[in-house]
């Protein structure tokens, strides 16, 4: 056991625990529309952090992450509205199906690297959008699937209120966060960073690089599926917009705005973009313009995100 190596992780855990305590403690005194936004922020944070495992840690710039998010969302929507599935069953099925789909996609996309990988993962997401849009009997097409009720949660009962649903999402978020932390600290997490830094060296050291990347894609896909499932409960409606280009890119933006490869950055990025959207929408109808500016500004001046800027300022 290396005591020195635990210092930074312990600081991180302390910081996160404080932030979570604030998120949990503040909710009852905040207006309910803020709590609703926080719920959305938490859901997107789960998805954005899972993309960070790929984009920031493993150096796999996947532009198709919304496809797995959508698999989770549609799975839940269909199971809940047509088969009256329980919360646990819908969550489990969404995670499992998203993992299976990402394993299949991994076999297709992992032979490409760099810019080709970006191009192909984006095409996968675009095709997923097309399927959601056209496969009407399964997805409801353009109208999507409506009327998804709030889940019935063990010990809580029907989480129909803003707060009870918020705490349900928060609890799952904490679980995901713990798993993310364990993952990035684990030997496997370190191998992903090694792959990001030098694939050829990893091979010569005896690593099956393809296998590690595929496992990372499956894990990230599973978490995105979980976020998608929660999103379906949160939104009550799932349609093709869940997986359209703007949505797919938004995950990438969240990761980069926060700071790729930091885990915490994407959490902040997810909250920032979610709140920005709602706040801007109050004042103007031109949210898309503001979002466009966010992309351009991030690309030109903050490619390492807010945490990157902080680090540079210090």
């Amino acid at each position: 056991m290396d005591v020195a190596a635990t210092r930074a992780p312990m600081r991180l855990v302390t910081g996160l625990a404080v932030a979570l305590a604030i998120l949990a403690g503040l909710a009852p005194v905040l207006p309910s529309y803020v709590v609703i936004l926080m719920t959305e922020g938490l859901i997107y944070a789960i998805a954005a952090a899972s993309l960070d495992l790929l984009l920031g840690f493993a150096g796999l710039p996947s532009l198709g992450h919304s496809a797995f998010f959508a698999v989770g969302a549609y799975t839940t929507a269909i199971l809940v509205t047509r088969h009256q599935a329980s919360f646990g069953a819908a969550l489990a099925a969404s995670v499992a199906l998203a993992a299976i789909v990402s394993a299949a996609i991994a076999l297709l996309v992992l032979r490409a690297t760099g810019i080709y990988f970006m191009m192909i993962t984006l095409a996968v997401a675009l095709c997923a959008w097309g399927l959601a849009y056209r496969w009407v009997s399964l997805t409801g097409g353009d109208t999507g699937i409506v009327g998804i009720p709030r889940p019935r949660v063990p010990w809580v009962g029907l989480a129909s209120g803003t707060l009870s649903f918020y705490y349900t999402v928060l609890a799952l978020f904490v679980g995901c966060l713990a798993l993310y932390l364990l993952l990035i600290w684990s030997p496997f997490g370190k191998t992903l960073v090694g792959i990001r830094d030098s694939e050829s060296r990893m091979r010569v050291l005896g690593y099956n690089v393809f296998l590690h990347k595929a496992v990372a894609l499956v894990i990230a896909g599973a978490f995105a599926g979980l976020a998608g499932s929660l999103y379906a409960y949160y939104n009550g409606f799932v349609g093709p917009s869940t997986v359209d280009l703007a949505h797919s890119m938004q995950f990438v933006l969240m990761v980069i705005v926060g700071g790729p490869g930091t885990l915490v950055g994407p959490l902040i990025g997810a909250f920032a973009i979610t709140f920005l959207e709602k706040m801007v929408s109050v004042f103007t109808e031109r949210w898309v313009m503001v979002l466009a500016a966010a992309y351009v500004v991030t690309a030109l001046w903050a490619p390492r995100g807010m945490l990157g800027l902080l680090r540079a300022a210090r």
Binding site: M1, T6, L183, S186, P187, K190, V193, G194, D197
Partner: peptide, 29 residues
């Protein structure tokens, strides 16, 4: 591995041949 510490570079090399490299739920340290 340019972004990692010297020790982490060597630890990655030491992990290459074992099964530990697949461990996901226990910190490397």
């Amino acid at each position: 591995f340019p972004t990692l510490s010297v020790l982490d570079n060597l630890v990655l090399a030491a992990l290459g041949l074992g099964r530990t490299k697949f461990s996901m739920l226990r910190p490397l340290w």
